[in-house]
């Protein structure tokens, strides 16, 4: 790769490009490979997914799909008896169950992770012996692959031989063994437990970074004025780390809304935990309803896009870090 910006300047006939123009021109060439990669891996596949959602394509014959408009989303037929039958994702109870599961999971997990992450960050922000050790320890859940943590917890949550049931029985928290991952009543708790365990460290580290940017003398001043520590937290700490917290929350929320792997491995086939990603992939690949699954994943994309737009707009989040 050589710099393309040198050639026009070398011609020397009359108007040489200004330095700024040269730089902009080379910037274009520097950006081009990345743009091509992102268009090929993200923009084009997204466009094709949306296109597939408007056809009746199947997995076995990818190129023989016909345009059927919005039929995968909603279509209806009036029977001779005058009764109208509605079909499509938008009237599919399984889809709405998945939407509800995803929303519930995202809301609860992000809320718990934010509160716990903030608490852990406050602990780590205090000076004590062995702090480096604790910080290293909380990185472990984050470093473990999601699939591995799902398997580890599946074993710990095993109804017969799991250590969680053993521990809870001994502590008197439960009176009989619970089939955490298998029963519909508890599978969501199991998923939440593992997700909170795995991602609270990420939240804690982002919060900690925010906390460490608060100048110490503010706390000093508050202490001299005799302000109660709880009031200090709500009046000083929280407003000051709000920008960091807002960004951390949206990253977590987006991860939660698209969750797939943990649920696929920890609670397979449980309709109580099936999320939008899980049900879309099931239709796309396993059930040979390629176009129907495309419609569902398009809807998930739309929901997430709307959510992000609303969050940034309402929360006035500055994500680029420019014009500080």
């Amino acid at each position: 790769m050589t710099s393309p910006s040198t050639s026009p300047a070398r011609a020397g006939t009359g108007a040489e490009l200004s330095l700024q123009q040269q730089r902009v021109r080379s910037a274009f060439w520097f950006l081009a490979p990345m743009m091509v990669a992102l268009i090929a891996a993200a923009a084009w596949p997204l466009f094709r997914t949306i296109y597939f959602s408007l056809t009746n394509t199947t997995l076995s014959s990818l190129y023989e799909g016909e345009w059927i408009g919005l039929g995968n989303y909603l279509n209806w037929r009036t029977l001779s008896s005058g009764k109208t039958i509605y079909r499509g994702t938008l009237v599919d109870p399984a889809w709405w169950n998945a939407v509800w599961n995803t929303v519930r999971f995202s809301f609860v997990s992000v809320l718990l992770e934010t509160v716990l992450g903030l608490l852990v960050a406050l602990v780590l922000n205090a000076e004590f012996r062995g702090r480096a050790l604790v910080r290293a320890a909380i990185l472990i859940p984050w470093a473990i692959p999601t699939i591995v943590s799902a398997k580890m917890w599946a074993w710990m949550l095993n109804d017969q031989f799991g250590i969680i049931n053993d521990l809870f029985l001994n502590l008197g928290i439960i009176s009989e063994k619970i089939a955490w991952t298998a029963s519909d009543a508890t599978s969501m708790y199991a998923v939440l437990m593992v997700d909170v365990w795995k991602t609270t460290p990420f939240m804690a580290l982002l919060c900690l970074a925010g906390l460490q940017m608060i100048p110490r003398d503010i706390y000093e001043a508050a202490r001299i004025d005799g302000v109660h520590p709880v009031k200090v937290f709500f009046r000083i700490t929280l407003p000051l780390i709000r920008p960091a917290l807002m960004v951390a929350v949206i990253f977590r929320a987006l991860d939660a809304l698209r969750i797939f792997d943990l649920i696929y491995v920890l609670t397979p086939n449980s309709s109580a935990t099936k999320t939008m990603s899980v049900i879309s992939r099931e239709n796309l690949i396993d059930f040979d309803k390629f176009a129907y699954g495309s419609a569902q994943s398009t809807l998930l994309f739309a929901i997430i896009a709307l959510f992000v737009a609303a969050y940034i707009w309402l929360g006035k989040v500055n994500l680029t870090g420019e014009n500080r």
Partner: peptide, 30 residues
């Protein structure tokens, strides 16, 4: 380098990292 549309480009790149991967699965598969 300062150029027009830089902020927009950055936001777009960030948006890609927030993509639900399932949304590109069908297209990528093809």
């Amino acid at each position: 380098v300062r150029f027009r549309g830089r902020g927009l480009l950055l936001i777009t790149i960030l948006a890609v990292s927030m993509f639900p991967q399932i949304a590109v699965l069908a297209g990528l598969f093809e």
